[in-house]
Amino acid sequence: MTRVVATTPGLYPLPDWAKDDLSDLKGHQKDDLISGDESEAITEAYDRARSEVVERQQAAGLDRIVEGQLRWDDMLAHPLAVADSVDMRGIVRYYDNNNFYREPVVTGDLTATGDVAAELESASEQVDEGLQAVLPGPYSLADLATDDHYGDEAAFLDAIADFLADEAGQFPDVETLFLLEPSLVENPPGDGPDARASEAIDTVASAVDADVVAHTYWGALEEKVYAHLMDADVDAIGFDLVSDHDQNVYNVQEYGTKDDVALGLVDGQNTLVESPETIRERIDWFQEMTGDDYGTVYATSNTELFYLPVNKFEEKLDALANAADLEEVEA
């Protein structure tokens, strides 16, 4: 019997009060923020916001709880933004949308900071079970960054993978790790690099004693990239059924998939809120089309959620949780 687990890929919008408070605080401390130092007032504001989004997920009834990644102003580039031997330079477009991030330029050997682990430790004080970690996948993080040190694409990807693995190795106990890999869709690797991308994901996945999901989105993977991703030692691959359900289903029909799957069923960039019944129908349709009875279906949004107004973001949390409950009732 398939178990439906309601979760998200994180990167939540800041609560409205936090946007105002942090904008004011950061406006007075730009030099500190550029250097990676945050005042006590900024730290306290983020702590309060993190606590609120954890409580909101619990109130919705999500099965996996993330810490929200509210400090990730540079989105998936954040783990590098706070690392040593990285210069944060000009503003660049975040994939093909109206969001921007500071370009991380790696200028020396990368070493783990423990930044992501510290936020998970804080969240774990409120979460008895079901804590979920979120990291950029190594291929996407390498794609978002610029190498000014390693001098070779393969060496740079290996270094990014080792960096993320060291970060993950510092995590508290988590049940699930979502590795977000939109660049596998947006800027697919060619022959050779596609196999190395899979190996890099293996490196990060092996660093945690948790179920690992390689979540891809903003479309479907090219067939060869997907075939190599199937070689990665992860528990589930994520499919964006909002952006391209047909090609994603074709990949599974043609090449199979893992025993578990993550399905992007809710649009992380559109304010229209899907009903629990619609979410269930999409799960049932995917299983019918692929002819598989999966052990676990992670019911999630297709993308990060920071694009949404807070009220719509919260309604989508409720819809995902209620869809999972509906599955339990009808099973």
Rank of each mutant, 00 (worst) to 15 (best):
P182Y: 02
L179G: 12
S206P: 00
A220V: 00
D211K: 15
V212A: 11
P189S: 03
P193Y: 04
L180A: 05
A214V: 15
L184P: 03
V213M: 13
S183E: 06
Y217K: 05
G190M: 04
T176Q: 15
A200F: 02
W218P: 00
E186I: 09
E222A: 14
A200D: 03
A195V: 06
P188Q: 09
D209V: 07
D209L: 05
A197E: 08
T203L: 00
A210T: 12
T176N: 11
D209C: 06
L179N: 11
A207D: 02
L177Y: 12
T216N: 14
S183P: 07
E181M: 07
V174Q: 07
N187P: 01
P182M: 02
V208H: 07
D173L: 05
P172F: 11
E222Y: 07
R196V: 00
N187V: 12
A197P: 10
P182V: 01
V185T: 13
E181T: 06
V174R: 11
P188F: 10
A205H: 03
A205V: 01
P189A: 04
E186Y: 06
S206G: 13
W218M: 10
L184C: 08
G169N: 02
D211T: 15
T216W: 13
D211R: 15
D173P: 10
L180Y: 11
E175K: 14
A195Q: 08
T176L: 14
P188Y: 10
S206W: 06
D202K: 00
A214P: 10
E186H: 04
S198W: 01
A197I: 08
P182Q: 03
Y217P: 06
D202N: 12
V208G: 11
D191I: 08
V185K: 06
F171D: 04
G219E: 04
L221I: 11
A207I: 03
V185N: 07
G192P: 04
S183L: 09
T203I: 00
D191L: 06
D202Y: 00
W218F: 15
G192A: 05
T216K: 06
G169I: 03
I201P: 01
F171E: 04
A195D: 08
V213S: 14
L179P: 10
D211N: 14
G192L: 04
A200W: 04
D211F: 11
V208A: 09
A220Y: 00
L180E: 09
D194M: 10
Q170H: 02
V213D: 12
P172N: 07
P182N: 03
S206H: 13
E222G: 15
G219L: 04
L184S: 09
E222H: 11
V185F: 09
V174T: 09
T176A: 11
F171L: 12
P182L: 02
A220M: 01
V204A: 09
E175A: 14
